[in-house]
């Protein structure tokens, strides 16, 4: 085990991913969670992206497990950036979609999706990937 203390970007993704997983069992739309009929799997994509990102950080950085350096030609930093930005995009998508009164679960998913995007962008700076700035 070769773990280290999480950086601010990693912490952002870990907290957002965890919060999104928990919130996925709360009401998202019309009294249904993201795992219920009529909402799954469109609404479940947000917490799924968050869990994938948080799981990678937990496995590699905190537990010290070595994963392959690249997946399909993408570095893990690029995968975080892509998943984070897509989660942010879907979060804005849900924010602007008229689903009636938005329950707390949907607000947490929206905030989590935006936090994933922020965390992924910040990670590029922390790890000096040169992707941003």
């Amino acid at each position: 085990m070769d773990g280290h203390k999480p950086t601010p970007a990693e912490l952002t993704i870990l907290i957002a991913g965890g919060a999104m997983l928990i919130a996925s069992f709360l009401h998202f739309q019309d009294g249904s969670s993201v795992w219920d009929r009529y909402t799954f799997p469109v609404a479940a994509l947000l917490p799924i992206y968050g869990v994938i990102m948080a799981a990678e950080i937990t496995i590699t950085d905190l537990a010290g497990v070595k994963l392959p350096g690249r997946v399909a030609g993408f570095t893990w930093e690029q995968i975080h950036l892509v998943l984070g930005l897509m989660a942010g995009l879907m979060a804005v998508g849900w924010l602007l979609t008229d689903t009636g009164k938005k329950p707390i679960g949907q607000w947490i998913e929206i905030a989590g999706g935006i936090a994933l995007a922020v965390g992924a962008v910040r990670m590029q700076r922390e790890r000096r990937t040169g992707a941003i700035g």
């Binding site: 799997p41 469109v42 994509l45 690029q78 941003i132």
Partner: peptide, 28 residues
């Protein structure tokens, strides 16, 4: 953002198909 344009196209296309698949699978 550090991605080649080929990678950008692949990522955006996959996101498109994932969303459309999700709508297809979703109960109605």
């Amino acid at each position: 953002l550090g991605l080649t344009w080929d990678q950008v196209h692949l990522v955006l296309a996959l996101q498109c198909v994932v969303l459309m698949l999700a709508f297809w699978v979703e109960s109605r």
